[in-house]
Design a protein around this nucleic acid. Structure first.
Length: 407
RNA sequence: GGGUAGGUGCCCGAGUGGUUAAAGGGAACAGACUGUAAAUCUGUCACCGUGAGGUUACGAUGGUUCGAAUCCAUCCCUGCCCA
């Protein structure tokens, strides 16, 4: 089966510059393609993960992915679809973030034997000379058309700086450079990158009259059109230190019914038969599908062992039975006993402030060992612990195991 | 550079001297209902305090005033129009 059809069937493809040609090209030869990632944080998140999935599918089909890390573009900031300007990052931070990205990418893409490449556009962008650049690619861009691009629409109201306006040029330049160096013929990216991708495709076609293609993949959104992968704390990170495997698992375990099928198809490698089967479950039964989804995605990101642990913990806590060892925990020293539970939890950062904690207690949102805590001044005593542990429940579904330390 | 409209809490946005910790909406959080779902309803949503109350907050800094998000001055930032 042609990868293009696989991608299409699984729902990845949003837009393509030359649908039939791309399909034919992918059937005919091993194509080098690239996806760019700007190092805006020190970890990839779920949105990037979707890109990884696309690349992995392509790689399995024999094509060669290039992960382009935006050490150069990251210094400018992509204005696409944003209402505000990105914060300027320092060179050190960008450097650090690039390294973090590289490490994480190894989990999803096979870089052995040149089967995939990872490059940083800082390598060439940072050396560019302004006049040379202008003369080199400037003539192939129409400002009129750039201004009309969808990605700047929101910015036309709030203001767009020249700095950011150039982002598109840089991205197009990247494609050209990768084409020169690696015979890269296709650029892929999230659908919000469409304008930027076309810019590169057109640059190559106009300047060199070379075939170049662009393809965008669906953005991960809920059935209501909201971005997926947002937690109360922000993004759903792939770095276990920023989002624990348990939290990660829980996120997927809790997706809305209407999004389960889409997630299975986009974020796992389960065969489509299975995706369709699981996705067709209704009512309570769909929980079975969510369980598979959460496990599969967690396994890919954090490994089988962590996925199992997360699943065990979740099921122990929500199912009432099982091993509680892997439930998120916090440690309390014996010295703290006799103090208010509220104060201890604020100190342990379970509550952002005392006010928040009080509110939660007053609203009946806190339980200790399955008993509602109704008294704000509830004291934490040794008798609350059995075998050195006690269970705390915050809100509807956040569980913590409190471990009593001797010290 | 000139003119003009603005900068309010996580976001949008009302408020033009005291009754404003600041309407309304969204987001978020909690409760009920459920299936660890969605929808719905109810409540909460600056910080400290059990409470009374206190503290901090309306771009920044100074000032007028018994009292300012609201008035004045200077500065910074943004949109639009003109150059």
């Amino acid at each position: 089966m042609n990868v293009y059809d696989v991608l299409k069937e699984r729902g990845y493809i949003a837009q393509a510059t030359h649908e039939e040609e791309i399909r034919a090209l992918l059937a005919k030869e091993n194509v080098t393609f690239y996806v760019g990632f700007d190092p805006t944080a020190d970890s990839l998140h779920v949105g990037h993960f979707l890109g990884m999935m696309v690349m992995a599918h392509m790689q399995r089909a024999g094509h060669r992915p290039i992960c382009l890390i935006g050490g150069g573009t990251g210094t400018v900031g992509d204005p696409s679809g944003r209402t505000d300007m990105r914060q300027m990052l320092t060179d050190e931070i960008i450097e650090h973030n690039c390294n973090c990205f590289k490490k994480q990418m190894q989990h999803f893409i096979d870089f052995s034997d040149g089967k995939a490449l990872i490059v940083n556009n800082g390598e060439w962008l940072r050396k560019l000379n302004y006049i040379d650049l202008l003369r080199d690619v400037g003539p192939y861009f129409s400002v009129n058309r750039m201004l009309a691009a969808e990605c700047y629409k929101q910015r036309m109201e709030k203001g767009l700086t020249f700095l950011e306006f150039n982002y598109m040029v840089m991205q197009a330049y990247d494609f050209m450079e990768l084409n020169r160096r690696y015979n890269c013929k296709m650029e892929m990216g999230g659908d919000d990158q469409w304008s930027n991708i076309i810019a590169g495709v057109e640059l190559l076609r106009r300047k060199y009259e070379r075939p170049a293609y662009g393809l965008t993949f669906t953005l991960l959104t809920t059935s209501e059109g909201k971005k997926m992968g947002k937690t109360a704390k922000g993004a759903l990170w792939l770095d276990p230190d920023k989002t624990s495997p348990y939290e990660f698992y829980q996120y997927w375990r809790n997706v809305g019914d209407t999004d389960v099928k889409k997630c299975l198809s986009l974020l796992t490698f389960l065969p489509m038969d299975e995706v369709n089967r699981l996705g067709s479950f209704e009512g309570q039964k769909i929980n079975e599908a969510k369980r598979v989804l959460a496990y599969e995605v967690t396994k890919m990101v954090h490994g089988e062992q962590e996925a199992k642990k997360a699943q065990e913990a979740a099921e122990a806590v929500f199912g009432g039975q099982g091993i509680l060892d892997n439930v998120p925990s916090l440690e309390v020293s014996k010295k703290a006993l006799g103090g208010r539970l509220l104060d201890i939890l604020v100190q342990k950062k379970i509550f952002a402030s005392k006010g928040e904690g009080k509110r939660l207690i007053q609203q009946n949102g806190l339980s200790l060992n399955n008993e509602k805590v109704s008294d704000i001044d509830r004291i934490l005593n040794e008798s609350d612990f059995a075998d050195g542990f006690c269970m705390l429940k915050k809100g509807k579904k956040k569980y913590y195991r409190i471990i009593l330390l001797d010290e």
